[in-house]
Simulated scan of single mutants.
Amino acid sequence: MGAYRCGDPAVREHGRRAAEIEAGARRPVAELVADVRATAARFEEAVRALPPAAWHAEVRMRTGEWRTPATLVPTRLRGSAPG
Rank of each mutant, 00 (worst) to 15 (best):
T39P: 00
E45T: 12
T63C: 04
R76W: 15
R48P: 01
A25M: 09
P74D: 06
P52T: 03
R37D: 07
A54P: 02
L50T: 10
T68A: 08
E13M: 06
R17S: 08
R48A: 15
R26L: 05
V11E: 00
A40M: 08
A40H: 09
E65M: 05
T68C: 14
A30N: 06
A3Y: 11
R5H: 02
A30F: 03
A46H: 12
P51D: 14
R62D: 12
R27E: 14
G79E: 03
R12P: 00
R17M: 11
G15W: 14
R12T: 05
A70F: 10
R5A: 07
T71C: 09
R16G: 00
A38W: 03
V47R: 08
G83W: 01
G64L: 00
L72T: 01
A30H: 10
A70M: 14
D8F: 02
V33K: 08
R26C: 04
D8G: 02
W66G: 05
G24L: 11
G79Y: 06
L32M: 13
S80W: 07
A3M: 15
H14W: 15
A40K: 11
A19R: 13
R60N: 04
E65F: 12
A53Y: 07
V29A: 14
A46C: 07
E44I: 05
G64I: 01
E31V: 15
H56Y: 11
S80R: 12
T39K: 14
E20W: 07
A18M: 10
A46N: 08
E20F: 08
W55C: 01
P74C: 12
G79H: 05
V47S: 09
A25K: 11
P28M: 02
L72W: 11
M1A: 07
L50G: 06
R27V: 04
V33E: 12
F43S: 07
T39A: 14
E13D: 14
L72V: 05
H14C: 09
L32G: 13
A46E: 11
A23I: 05
R76F: 14
G24Y: 04
Y4W: 14
E44L: 10
F43P: 01
A57T: 14
T39H: 11
R60H: 03
A57E: 15
A49V: 11
L77E: 10
A10K: 02
E65W: 03
R78P: 00
S80L: 12
G2L: 12
R12K: 07
P82C: 03
R42T: 06
S80K: 10
V47Y: 11
E20R: 14
V36F: 06
W55V: 01
E45Y: 01
W66K: 09
A10R: 15
R17D: 11
P74R: 13
A70R: 15
A10V: 15
E65D: 04
G7L: 03
L50D: 04
R78Y: 09
P28R: 05
D35F: 06
G7Y: 00
A54K: 14
I21S: 03
W55Q: 00
L77C: 10
A40S: 14
M1H: 02
T63W: 06
R5E: 01
V73D: 01
R27C: 06
V29D: 08
G7R: 03
A81P: 07
G15K: 15
I21F: 07
A41V: 04
A18F: 04
R60Y: 02
M1G: 02
G7C: 06
R76L: 15
V36I: 08
E45A: 15
P9W: 01
V47Q: 04
